[in-house]
Computed example of a mutant assay.
Amino acid sequence: MTTADDPQQYIDEMARKRGYVLDYHKVMARHDFAVLQAANGLVGAAYLDQRALDRKTKELIFIVSLTVMRASKGHIQSHIRVALDLGITPQEILEAIEISLPEAGVVAFQTGFEAWREVVGADGLEPAVEAFQGGSGAA
């Protein structure tokens, strides 16, 4: 990451390197640039810098960890978009999100799933009208 002293240049470089910037990055650049730089240094070391894991693997891990932590849908979506840009398929991303089910539960999964659904434009099947008629309603 650049060591630019200019907050605008720093945000521009973040966008180039990450493929996204979050709203809090933009506000911190203006109001507490030093803390943004410190926090971004940690992100660079753990996530952006090339080490043993490639960027695709890290992106999938990030999507799952954000899902498990119940991050905002927009935050999860920013990483889904980066994953797609890296060549990760929608199915691979969905399978990664599904890993959250056994450990974090349905509620956490649904947040990640909804983020994925919106980004990739996935739709579902509607039950036939007959499915609602004449049944006992019990599963």
Rank of each mutant, 00 (worst) to 15 (best):
T2V: 09
T2M: 09
T2C: 08
T3H: 10
T3M: 12
T3G: 08
T3Y: 11
A4C: 11
A4T: 06
D5V: 04
D5W: 07
D6N: 14
P7A: 06
Q8W: 09
Y10P: 05
Y10N: 02
I11G: 04
E13I: 05
E13G: 01
E13K: 05
R16E: 14
K17S: 06
R18I: 03
G19W: 04
G19H: 01
Y20K: 08
L22S: 05
L22K: 05
D23Q: 07
D23W: 01
Y24F: 15
H25E: 12
V27N: 15
V27E: 15
V27S: 15
R30V: 13
H31R: 10
F33T: 06
V35M: 15
L36T: 00
A38M: 15
A39Y: 05
A39V: 07
A39M: 10
A39E: 08
N40S: 13
G41D: 13
L42V: 12
L42N: 12
V43G: 01
V43H: 02
G44Q: 08
A45M: 14
A46E: 11
Y47P: 03
Y47G: 05
D49K: 11
R51Y: 13
R51I: 13
R55M: 08
R55I: 01
K56Q: 12
K56V: 04
T57D: 11
E59Y: 02
L60C: 02
L60N: 03
F62W: 06
F62H: 02
I63E: 01
I63P: 03
T67M: 07
R70Q: 11
R70Y: 05
G74P: 04
H75T: 13
H75K: 13
Q77I: 03
Q77P: 05
S78K: 00
S78M: 03
H79Q: 07
H79W: 01
I80A: 06
I80E: 04
R81N: 03
A83Y: 04
L84K: 00
L86R: 00
L86M: 10
I88H: 01
I88K: 04
T89L: 03
T89A: 02
P90E: 08
P90C: 09
E92I: 04
E95A: 14
E95F: 13
E95D: 15
E95S: 14
A96Q: 06
I99Q: 12
S100N: 09
L101V: 13
P102M: 12
E103H: 14
A104T: 10
V106D: 14
V107D: 08
F109I: 10
F109H: 09
T111K: 06
G112V: 07
G112Q: 02
G112Y: 02
R117L: 04
V120L: 00
G121R: 02
A122Y: 07
G124Q: 08
G124W: 07
G124T: 08
G124I: 02
L125F: 12
P127N: 14
P127W: 12
E130D: 15
E130I: 10
G134C: 11
G135D: 13
S136H: 12
S136Q: 14
G137F: 03
A138E: 09
A139N: 11
A139F: 11
A139M: 11
